[in-house]
Design a protein around this nucleic acid. Structure first.
Length: 720
DNA sequence: AGCACGCCGACT
DNA sequence: GTCGGCGTGCTC
């Protein structure tokens, strides 16, 4: 006897869907979320396929869960991701499936309003509440208490006495409907033309990918907002992807200025009931625009009509644990599957996107100038071979004079050094002991504010010792080299009456305080900002007219094949912070190698030439974009680290046909969250077969298979 | 992700 | 002896 069988994919690290018999009378369709027995428990999964067959010895589907059905397009997308990243299908599903928690209580929103009678006993606190409530409108309990400046207890007391009455409120809408016609911003001719190109792309039969390139301050956001408006007019949904850090109040305000309301936002901080409601509302096409971090790519959009990837070159789009993926590239794939145009926006596009433009896969839309006639900052090198800096100082006389000048005019200066902490290396003066990380043999960085030594590689932290741990000498530790904290010390010595602030990712007080301080900087409450990468992105400081780069050469000598590109992008972004307000900006770049291609391109502003040359250099080195590159990340428990490492190295020595291992020959081990990791770079000749090659390769070494994770690092070729 | 199973060292 | 630590493997 045949029966209906459902192949159910369970959101665990399982690569195949499991088969369950469908009981008579239970309506089950492909894409449905169902509850099934697994081992000795019940789990949720998604019906990946339906078929007829002998289901007698199979376990049965328990129930259909009330959750949005996963569309065929969504399932195809998740299948593709699993194949492409070599991750188990179930792991891919886990990224795109949110099961409503049946235990979660709907939090009733209780409103209160004035009922009539005056309180029997009047107190000052009650008086304040009465004054606020006088207008008779309904307010949330907490809002009323807050507006009156009293605690909730006072309001509760008045409710008990019958002075205030409670009203049950409808749930707050998850997101408000943006209005495409709300506020038209005046666009420049260049912006208008670019916006028209994007809008025209929305009507094409085969949705294209467009690279929107425009210097910092050229108004890219306003340009792609026009495409967002078009999608809304067509009744379709838009996803705006951004690096987590860029989901700022500033961006949301700009969106609100154009569309009347803020967009729905999705990131790791959106949790609980809010997350569930947003998820279902997106699946029901009730939310038209989502601005989100990379995880927003896996939401079940009912009718996705446009994807924007803001700051497409950002490395934050790479997910480096679990399923390894690059959200920008996956966005291109999702756009292809949904037939939605994808706009990649950046002031400094990645090499792979440039190559895709060159090869005709992506279209190039360029915004040549800054908006409102503002000019790009003037950039000058300070040649450290010619200009002496006093011992123990890091700011050159030229830069010091420029800062002095700038702050004297009431403008702001940014001192950029991409190195957290006080000093990158600590030595003992007596015995020359170097403080190294016990786990991964990198130097421990002194953090003076926190009074500790920190490993920036694995996160190991120890108290800064008073006496040398090696020879016992007291007060013998010498900090070597500068970090931002040390620069802050120097700045406050040089400019004692100026207000300085240090910004780095280990900013005390977390994101909340960081946001507040960024706003304070924009409002002019500081004169000198000392910061790492963090300040290079996303924030607009209208009063900032000088950017000093303290050591432009950091990163240029590392072994990373993308070091030059990354450094160039970072320096271009950070120098672009200058002169975004009324007054023109300038940048001074301290360097030991003013003739290095990265520095020369930065000074001359000739990005095109730099990228051409960089592409050629890579081609000669056999690196992408002209091959397919994968980065094998292998992780193992401590006990097996040595053996796993040895086996992986044996694989490296004997790659299958078509695969080239670029190295390193001896991959260094790093301890991250209790597991040893190392990375290998692998390239294949052919365009499509990388996954097949790697799977067969790993299969030859079963011992490390379970511990091996493979991420595809760069791939400019295979999507279209 | 859970959970069982099996292998090792330290105890009521 | 056996309790419990973790590392490994399985779940239709």
């Amino acid at each position: 006897m045949t029966s209906r069988i459902a192949d159910v994919l369970i959101p665990l690290a399982l690569d195949t869907a499991y088969s369950y018999a469908v009981p008579d009378g239970l309506a089950v369709e492909e894409g449905d979320v169902v509850q099934v027995p697994l081992a000795n428990r019940e789990v949720a999964g998604v019906v990946w396929g339906m078929r007829d067959g002998q289901g007698g010895n199979l376990k049965k589907v328990t129930a259909v869960i009330e959750a949005p059905n996963l569309s065929p397009k969504m399932r195809k997308f998740l299948d593709w991701i699993a194949w492409y990243t070599l991750a188990p299908k179930g792991s891919a599903l886990a990224m795109g499936l949110k099961i409503p928690d049946p235990d979660r209580q709907e939090v009733a929103r209780v409103g209160v309003k004035l009922a009539g009678p005056s309180p029997k006993r009047m107190t000052p606190a009650r008086q304040k509440v009465m004054e606020v409530a006088q207008d008779g409108t309904v307010r949330l309990k907490s809002e009323l208490a807050h507006a009156a400046g009293v605690s909730a207890g006072v309001v509760n007391g008045l409710i008990d006495e019958g002075v205030l009455e409670t009203v049950t409120l409808l749930a707050e809408p998850v997101a408000e409907m943006p209005d495409p016609a709300f506020g038209h911003t005046a666009l420049s001719d260049g912006q208008r033309e670019a916006a028209d190109t994007l809008v025209a792309a929305m009507g094409e039969e085969h949705a294209p990918v467009l690279l929107l390139e425009g210097v910092t301050g050229s108004g890219k956001t306003e340009v792609y907002f026009e495409a967002v408006a078009e999608a809304m007019q067509q009744g379709r949904q838009t996803l705006i992807l951004m690096p987590e850090i860029a989901l700022t109040a500033q961006f949301l305000d700009r969106f609100a200025a154009r569309f009347g309301v803020k967009p729905a936002t999705w990131h790791s901080g959106v949790t609980g009931r809010k997350r569930e409601r947003l998820y279902t509302a997106i699946a029901a096409n009730e939310v038209k625009v989502v601005a989100g971090a990379r995880s927003a790519l896996f939401l079940p959009y009912a009718d996705l009509g446009l994807i924007i990837v803001d700051e497409e070159h950002e490395t934050a789009y790479k997910q480096d644990d679990g399923v390894h993926y690059h959200a920008r590239d996956m966005a291109v794939v999702r756009g292809k599957i949904e037939n939605a145009p994808v706009v990649l926006a950046s002031a400094t596009p990645s090499i792979e996107s440039r190559v895709n433009v060159e090869r005709g896969r992506y279209r190039h839309v360029k915004l040549p100038e800054r908006f409102g006639g503002r000019s790009m900052p003037q950039i000058r090198a300070v040649d450290l071979r010619k200009e002496a800096i006093p011992k123990g100082r890091w700011l050159s006389p030229t830069l010091v004079a420029a800062v002095e000048d700038t702050v004297a005019r009431g403008e702001q200066a940014l001192l950029f050094l991409n190195r957290r902490g006080y000093a990158p290396l600590t030595l003992c003066r007596s015995c020359a002991h170097r403080y190294e990380c016990p786990n991964c043999s990198s130097w421990l960085v002194e953090h003076r504010f926190r009074r500790s030594l920190v490993c920036h590689h694995c996160g190991h932290v120890e108290r800064t010792p008073h006496a040398c741990v090696e020879c016992g000498s007291v007060d013998s530790l010498v900090p070597c080299g500068p970090g931002v904290e040390r620069i802050a010390e120097e700045a406050s010595e040089l400019f004692p009456d100026k207000r300085c602030i240090v910004l780095s990712s280990d900013f005390p007080g977390g994101t909340e305080r960081l946001r507040a301080e960024l706003a304070a900087i924009a409002a002019g409450e500081f004169d000198i900002v000392i910061g790492t990468q963090l300040v290079a992105k996303g924030h607009n400081f209208p009063l900032m007219t000088l950017v000093g780069v303290l050591d432009a050469d950091i990163g240029l000598t590392s072994g990373d094949p993308r070091a030059a590109e990354r450094t160039f992008q970072m320096l271009q972004q950070v120098t672009g912070r200058a002169g975004r307000g009324e007054k023109p900006g300038r940048a001074l770049v301290q360097t030991w190698q003013p003739d290095h291609p990265v520095i020369a391109a930065l000074i001359s502003g000739d990005a095109e030439r730099f990228y051409e040359e960089e592409t050629r250099v890579r081609e000669m080195a056999g690196l992408p974009p002209f091959g397919r590159l994968a980065s094998l990340v292998v992780s193992a428990a401590e006990r097996e680290a040595a053996e796993t490492h040895a086996r992986a190295m044996a694989l490296v020595a004997e790659p299958p046909p078509g695969v080239t291992v670029l190295g390193p020959a001896e991959a260094p081990l790093a301890l991250i969250r209790g597991r040893y990791r190392f990375r290998l770079l692998v390239k294949t000749e052919r365009e499509v077969d990388l996954q097949a090659y790697l799977r067969s390769w790993m299969a030859r070494c079963p011992k490390i298979r379970g511990n091996t994770r493979v991420s595809i690092d760069v791939d400019p070729q295979s999507f279209l």
